[in-house]
Amino acid sequence: MNVFRLAGDVSHLVAIIILLVKIWRSKSCAGISGKSQVLFALVFTTRYLDLFTVFISAYNTIMKVVFLAMSYATVYLIYMRFRNMYDSENDTFRVEFLLVPVIGLSFLENYAFTPLEILWTFSIFLEAVAIMPQLFMITKTGEAESITTHYLFFLGLYRALYIANWVWRYHTEEFFDQIAVVSGVVQTIFYCDFFYLYVTRVLRGKAKMILP
């Protein structure tokens, strides 16, 4: 554990809490892609199956359980509790275009051809692209509420901090997880354009982020 890793996990937690609290308080999930949230729930489910096989640390176990619980709570709020507000007309990204290549790749490129390893690899690749329905939705409607953009900012920050964590771990303990690093870098690139808009628009006091 290093400071980048811890800050990355905290950013991830903050992002998910921001989204949950926003939906709960406003009693609305307008502008939120339910598809992205289902994909994230699928990411956590397939990655954290090792909760049943190995024990790493209390921190590790607690964080995994919290991420799982909060991602399912988010999906529940969007599709059940506040489904009347769910903006399905603008959440039209074709998820199968992500799932099919990701499933294919996880069978081809993995550390071991076992169910748990393939599911873990699937979760890593899927996380890299899971935000695409949300970004697609913002592009389609041309705007995002500032709370939604804060959520995306903390998600992107989490990814950037994980890259710093890998650089640190590579130098201090010669740790290098090729699958996680390559897909993590790809994932971070998706946030770059958004980061630029966030800094130039949202941080300068706009209530909404309106695309140029």
Binding site: R5, H12, K64, Y111, N165, E174, Q178, A180
Partner: peptide
């Protein structure tokens, strides 16, 4: 070490 042996990251 490789990622396969110890997956301690979230």
């Amino acid at each position: 070490h490789k990622g396969a042996d110890m997956k301690d990251e979230l």
